[in-house]
Simulated scan of single mutants.
Amino acid sequence: MAKKFKNAPTLNDLSQPLAALSLQEYINLHAADVLSPHPFMEGASTLRFWQETFQPVRSGEGKRWINDTLRWPYAERLIYLSREFRQLDTRYQRYILKAAKAHIWWRGDDSQRFQAIVAAHLNYRKLNETERLHYRKRLMQAAQQLLRNG
């Protein structure tokens, strides 16, 4: 989470009429185009489709007041990713949807990078607990070396 959001007052601290907006209302207010149905949704509710396709809400993505404006990082992420997703070719969209069913989340990556991410996730899931521990240690060593050299 960005530092600028950490100290921002949460909606529990402020009582404003906008604070009661649902996710559907917030998106409709800021990006109504995102809520229009598309053939790839196969009749599913648009908001539910986006919520199932992209990573669920993470800590720190709740509603916040920033400079007298209601900001909702989770909703803004859904808006951004849905707009990006709609511009992709059909084949890549299907690939992203299949990965989402396996709980591998697309974050706007290009197709080559996302395919590598999916492959890494699937390979990691095949490892036993000891192999996972060694894998994480190797990652930490590589990250530390990058920090030293960078």
Rank of each mutant, 00 (worst) to 15 (best):
F49N: 07
H30L: 03
Q141L: 14
N128Y: 08
F114H: 11
F54R: 05
M140R: 15
F5D: 06
Q93T: 00
T53D: 06
R113Y: 05
A142K: 15
D89G: 11
M41K: 05
F40S: 08
Q112I: 04
R136V: 05
R136D: 07
A19W: 01
E42K: 15
W105H: 09
S111W: 09
P73R: 01
G43Y: 12
K3Y: 08
H121M: 08
Y95V: 03
A143I: 07
A75R: 06
R107G: 08
R71A: 03
N7R: 12
L29K: 14
S36V: 01
F54W: 05
L47D: 05
R58F: 02
E52T: 06
E76K: 11
L81H: 09
S36C: 01
R138P: 01
S22W: 02
G62I: 00
F5V: 05
R71T: 03
R125E: 04
T130H: 14
P73Q: 07
Y80W: 09
L81C: 04
E76H: 13
S15H: 14
R77M: 06
A99D: 04
S15K: 14
H103V: 00
W72Q: 04
R148L: 12
R86V: 00
K3C: 00
L88F: 08
R125L: 09
Y26F: 15
H103N: 14
E84D: 08
